[in-house]
Amino acid sequence: MKKLGLATALLLAMTGAQAYQFEVQGQSEFIDNTVNDKNFTGAVQGTYYFKNVDASKGPLAEAAFLNQASNASLAYNYGEYDVNADKADFVSHTIGAKAEAYIPTKVVPVYASASYSNTITDNKDNKTDDHGDRYAVEVGAVVVPNFLVAVGYTSAPNQTSYDAFNILSNGVAKAALESKTIARDQDAVTARTKYVGAIDGTNMAIGFETNVLFAEYKTYGFKTDLFVNPKLSVGASYAESSISDSPNKAWGANVNYFITPAVAVGANYVSANAEKGSVRDTETVGVNAKFRF
């Protein structure tokens, strides 16, 4: 009977379950720069929601946000990078832990989050290995339905420290751009917005996110998604930093599709074209998958 119950639960998850409490996602990106096209990353994230997430309304990709679902996550990213002409040859390991909470009040739902990431850089070019920490907190509110506004503080005392969750959300190129920006200063102030809303008279929805980071220099980004239907979305993104290094800007495109309400696949592309002849002229192509149960 136990085996039958497990098999039934798995079948429901694979074919059409409209509520879930766990989400596991994996991602891999192939990095092509001016002098090497064999670099790659691999990442995985697991998220536990404290209550069941109702995925029956709105875009499946944004079910947790639409439900204001408090959660806890763990993430890991592995990356190999080798550019001989730029004297960069290393393996990177980034682990992260994050918690998000939505707290109802009489006025508006209040949002809070805290995260920690640790990056271990295993240098292969006779340089000393590196070990960097990053801490971040955010507070905000859902000021109108499905519209979040949040501000935060990030501390990255070591210059080589990546946000494990930023890698999974926006790709390694944009995460590296943000890391290079905050590396100019150990502390940074952040602000972001997120909105998801239906397009009247259609089965479609639109979503957008904006973010800005202020340190000695600053970086900002914009991301938008068109949900053609609850299962399928296409999106575009852009990020730019005021650092003098190149590349200091990146744009991207993505597509995601839910095969069932519990299983999704996607692909993304990011271009970070360098100026001034840098060997870091970079393109990334990524694939990802999600499983909910």
Rank of each mutant, 00 (worst) to 15 (best):
F293M: 13
T94R: 08
I199K: 11
A150T: 00
V255K: 01
Y20N: 02
P109K: 09
V270D: 15
K38C: 05
V151L: 14
G266L: 04
P261A: 05
K57F: 10
F222M: 13
A205R: 01
T41E: 09
A272Q: 06
A64R: 06
A156H: 04
N36E: 13
A198R: 07
T224H: 02
A141T: 13
E216K: 14
G46N: 09
L213K: 02
V35S: 15
L12K: 12
L11C: 10
G286T: 02
D185N: 15
D130H: 14
K124M: 11
G26T: 07
H131V: 06
E138D: 12
T193Q: 03
A85R: 13
P247K: 03
A99K: 00
D130A: 14
Q45D: 01
N170T: 06
V83K: 09
K290R: 14
I243Q: 05
A9N: 12
F147S: 03
A176Y: 08
D125P: 04
A262R: 05
G46H: 08
T128I: 11
Y162S: 08
A289H: 07
A253G: 10
S169W: 02
A272Y: 02
Y76V: 07
D187T: 00
N36T: 07
K106C: 10
A69H: 02
D225N: 14
W251T: 00
G266W: 01
N254C: 00
D281P: 12
A215S: 15
P104K: 05
T105M: 09
P261K: 04
N268T: 07
H93V: 02
I206D: 03
G46W: 11
V44A: 15
P157A: 03
F30V: 07
T202F: 11
V234F: 14
V107G: 03
R280Q: 14
T47G: 08
T160A: 12
A85K: 14
F208S: 00
S246V: 02
A64K: 09
F258V: 06
G42W: 08
Y111G: 00
N211K: 08
I120T: 11
N33P: 02
A289M: 12
G277H: 10
P59Y: 10
D225H: 09
K290S: 14
V139D: 04
K2N: 13
K231Y: 04
M204G: 06
N288W: 08
A264S: 15
V83M: 08
L60W: 10
A173H: 02
N123I: 01
N248F: 04
A43W: 05
V83H: 09
V212F: 12
E29G: 06
K231E: 13
Y81N: 07
D54K: 03
A191Q: 01
A136D: 03
I167C: 03
D54G: 04
V24N: 04
A19G: 07
F208K: 00
N39I: 09
V212M: 11
S92F: 10
L168S: 05
A114M: 11
S56A: 13
S237Q: 15
S113W: 04
Y269F: 15
T119D: 11
T193N: 05
S242L: 01
D86F: 13
V172Q: 11
S237I: 00
V196L: 07
G286C: 03
N248K: 10
V270K: 05
A141E: 10
G152L: 05
V196A: 04
N36S: 15
T260P: 10
T190Q: 05
N203C: 01
F165I: 06
K2H: 14
N126D: 14
A175C: 03
K174S: 12
D200Y: 08
D129R: 04
V143Y: 14
E100K: 05
